[in-house]
């Protein structure tokens, strides 16, 4: 049976794999197995980003997201964000470990000088060092705490994102506990987003791979229009992919330019099943 497709209704959200698959840690649940040595996708330069921003302006893109890998490993990240914020709102997804005081000050300056929103998302994977570090590596929690303190000092309130690997976070009680933890860092306006896990990349080993029946078999255009791939694309060093999740799938590479990707996408992957069933959106 052929897979259903998602139409591209409007290109609202443009993602940049700004740090490629290069990260300073190796999370056991990473759906693209990022690590210090994974060069599957390389870092993007300021020129790479500017080229797509110019195309995005023509297409009326609404918002920009930056991820990796770890975006703050990209030495050009501040100039890249400055260039982006001249054109629209930007959100950066980070593990929070490289948020030094000077970086946070630069981010605060960008926040203040732009008419558009600059937002940060910092990932936590547990209620404490033990559970967080079990997924992210020894000593990571302590470094994130320093980063979050620096952000709070700079007066920037991030969104804390937590995957469902953190046990109980999806429950009302779990949310409440997490919001209290965030307040404890010194953030007056705690924000929390819970993310689903995709059983690909490293997560495939931590839990298990998708079963062959975990595929979408039928979906109307109207139903597919709520999927994020009906309104987003992802720019990496290898070209333009359908979404932030499927960048290791060769058939999810839709073209070299944004315009080439303005067409429907066949939802043939296990991750597509998760997106539909869990109602996932990678945007905030």
């Amino acid at each position: 049976m052929p897979s259903p497709s998602a139409p591209l209704i409007a290109l609202d959200t443009l993602w940049f794999q700004v740090a490629g698959t290069i990260c300073n840690i190796e999370c056991t649940h990473c759906f693209i197995s990022c690590s210090p040595a994974n060069h599957s996708h390389e870092m993007l330069s300021l020129a790479d980003v500017e080229m797509r921003l110019a195309e995005a302006r023509e297409l009326g893109v609404r918002e920009y997201y930056f991820t990796g890998g770890e975006p703050f490993m990209n030495r050009d990240i501040i100039p890249i964000l400055r260039a982006t914020l001249r054109q629209g709102p930007a959100t950066v997804l980070t593990n929070g470990m490289l948020l030094r005081k000077d970086v946070c000050r630069s981010l605060r300056e960008l926040f203040d000088e732009s008419d558009y929103s600059l937002d940060l998302r910092v990932s936590l994977d547990g209620f404490d060092a033990e559970s967080h570090d079990a997924i992210r590596g020894k000593g990571v929690w302590d470094r994130v705490m320093v980063g979050l303190t620096n952000l709070a000092e700079a007066g920037l309130d991030p969104v804390i994102t937590v995957t469902t690997a953190a046990e109980g976070v999806a429950s009302g009680e779990g949310r409440k506990r997490f919001l209290e933890i965030i307040r404890g860092f010194g953030f007056a306006k705690p924000r929390l987003k819970v993310l689903s896990l995709f059983r690909i990349g490293a997560e495939e080993t931590r839990t298990h791979a998708y079963e062959s029946w975990e595929r979408l078999t039928s979906l109307t255009n109207e139903e597919a229009s709520v999927l994020q791939c009906s309104s987003c694309r992802m720019v990496t060093s290898k070209g333009v992919f359908v979404c932030p999740i499927l960048i290791e799938e060769p058939r999810a590479r839709m073209g070299d330019t944004l315009r080439e990707t303005m067409r429907p996408f066949a939802l043939e992957y296990g991750a597509c099943h998760t997106c539909w069933v869990d109602g996932v959106t990678c945007t905030t």
């Binding site: 409007a10 009326g60 893109v61 609404r62 054109q87 709102p89 008419d115």
Partner: peptide, 21 residues
């Protein structure tokens, strides 16, 4: 114009997007 409950905030409605709308 696209959705009755879409939020058009000042800081997330850039000019190119509004021109397109």
């Amino acid at each position: 114009p696209r959705r009755i409950n879409e939020f058009l905030w000042r800081s997330t409605s850039p000019d190119p997007f509004l021109e397109k709308l």
